[in-house]
């Protein structure tokens, strides 16, 4: 079976992404030092989600692979969220 030609990502792209990831990390840390009350965790998790989408799409090549992979990843994330939500359905209503 032939192996289709692979996309070559330039070194620069990785360095840009790294800079972005570090910036996001530092933002996240700084924001938690300022008291944002209940929002702190939400913001930290949103930033984490943005960071992971970078890692998934660029570092893990999802952006350049067969669409099947990204769909499966999204599916798994949704599944896990659904399981957490259903479990919390019990705890939030006790």
């Amino acid at each position: 079976m032939e192996n289709e030609k692979n996309h070559i990502i330039p070194y620069k792209t990785f360095l840009y992404v790294l800079a972005g990831l570090i910036a996001l990390t530092l933002t996240s840390v700084t924001l938690t030092q300022i008291s944002l009350g209940a929002m702190t965790v939400t913001i930290a998790l949103i930033i984490a989600a943005v960071k992971s989408s970078f890692v998934l799409s660029i570092f893990m090549h999802l952006k350049f692979e067969n669409k099947m992979f990204s769909r499966a990843v999204i599916g798994v994330i949704l599944l896990l969220s659904a399981v957490i939500a259903i479990t919390l359905l019990d705890y939030l209503n006790r």
Binding site: T25, S28, V29, T32, T40, V41, A44, L45, I47, A48, K51, S52, V55, L56, F59
Partner: peptide
Amino acid sequence: DLIWIFLFPLFYLI
């Protein structure tokens, strides 16, 4: 790395 991206805020930044 991805797992750590979530562990970090959940333990250190709350």
